[in-house]
Amino acid sequence: MRRQGLWIAALLTPAALTMAVFVVWPMLGAFRYAFFSFNGLLPADFVGLSNFVDVLARAPFKAAVFAALWHNIIVFVCLMLFQNGLAYLIAYALLKQWPLHRVHQVIVFLPVVLSAVIVGFLWKLFLHPLFGLVNAALALVGIHGPPWLGNESTALGSLIFVNGWHFLGMAALIFLAGMQRIPQEVMEAARIDGASDGVLLRRIVWPLVAPAVTIIFILTFIGSFNWFELPYVMAGLTGSPGGATDVLGLVFYRTAFGSVSSGLQDFGHGSALAVLMFLFIAVFSAVALRFLRRREIAL
């Protein structure tokens, strides 16, 4: 028995040690560092809650943080409505198993496997005001397209569109898997009773894919509030134009590692921001999960 104990310990040690050094210890550090002022890379003085107060209530952080938070909220709401709404319809269309539905699944999921850097740069070229594909296509039907990424009123929307293009397939295939779990009899019975596609989608399918809705809601929420790569690649570190695409991920990065204009690291305020983002995401996800789970119906 002792030999078996040693064997089990040997199996567990490499993984546990890696987790301890590169997950547990840093996570503890993330909370600890938020209470310190920094001198370069080293924590200097214990400053209590002052980093948190600075980030939430004092210039220059306050304005940027709340403007960014508002943008994150817009991103989340738009992705839920448009990206995931369209994904729901696509999934329903795929459920009908018309010819080429498997090919369509492969195509719709293709962007999901690519890096946000590739997707971001590709669409940055396509959205170019003069030479971009999008405005070239609009010109064919006589529309003079705006400079999508250079205009404060269209920049964030353009980024949301690109994010939707990137991850539509993920949401669609999660919905599709949920729909495939609905028993055939339920759908047949509704059809025999004369339910149209619209009624089916709203009254039958929607409540029965509740578990998929829960997952997609949580994934979209976490993704929206950790949004960084796409705005960084397409709009730069300051969320150009004029901060119209600034989000919390960019504010955090600028605070912690310095922006283009000031290369100064500020790990104290950065840590406080990271802790606040972590708590916000964790608490909201937990509350949302409780609420969403309650509306799931066990089949």
């Binding site: 987790m19 050094v21 590169f22 997950v23 210890w25 840093p26 996570m27 503890l28 550090g29 993330a30 560092y33 890379l41 976490i222 950790n226 960084f228 912690a256 790990f267 950065g270 840590s271 990271a274 802790v275 983002m277 972590f278 995401i281 964790a282």
Partner: peptide
């Protein structure tokens, strides 16, 4: 439990580590 931890937000301590 590590599934719940967004390691990106621990980038500062990871940097120091």
């Amino acid at each position: 439990a590590g599934l719940m931890v967004p390691l990106k937000l621990a980038i500062i301590p990871l940097f120091i580590q």
